[in-house]
């Protein structure tokens, strides 16, 4: 298993745990009426679908898809690491800034969300760029 794959998969498990913790906070919020936890629902969803599922998929695709070439079986390792960094920095920024923005809207949190949105988009783009040519009948 290549090194980037191990980072993708292990980090995805960390996000799964974080998502379940966020789920517990959501349950506590509805039980005890904690309004301070606004903006947590979308964070919970994306910790699951992006931090866990999509990150797990990115790691397994990098590892198991048909080889790009004999010299570079997994395409560009550099691009693989970029995807990893962008995904995780982008999602972490969102997970912090979105609840802040929903409870105490302010320009700093707001612009952090804009930056996070751009970073997450780039994570998807680098993944597709690096994987597209490995998806072929060979």
């Amino acid at each position: 298993m290549p090194t980037p794959t191990r980072w993708f998969i292990k980090t995805s498990f960390v996000y799964l745990a974080l998502a379940l913790i966020a789920g517990l906070l959501l349950a506590a919020r509805s039980l005890f009426g904690l309004t301070a936890l606004g903006g947590l629902f979308p964070v919970y969803i994306h910790l699951l679908v992006f931090g866990w599922l999509t990150q797990l998929v990115f790691g397994v695709v990098y590892w198991m898809f048909p080889k790009y070439s004999a010299e570079k079986p997994r395409g560009s390792e550099t691009l693989g690491w970029w995807t990893y960094a962008l995904l995780n920095v982008g999602l972490a920024l969102r997970a912090i800034a979105e609840p802040v923005q929903s409870v105490h809207p302010n320009p700093f949190a707001g612009w952090t969300l804009v930056v996070s949105a751009a970073i997450q988009f780039c994570a998807g783009l680098t993944f597709v760029l690096n994987s597209w040519n490995r998806v072929r009948e060979k």
């Binding site: 800034a97 923005q101 952090t112 997450q120």
Partner: peptide, 10 residues
Amino acid sequence: GALMLAQDGI
């Protein structure tokens, strides 16, 4: 998603 997240921000 990015367009919506940016909207939530600014």
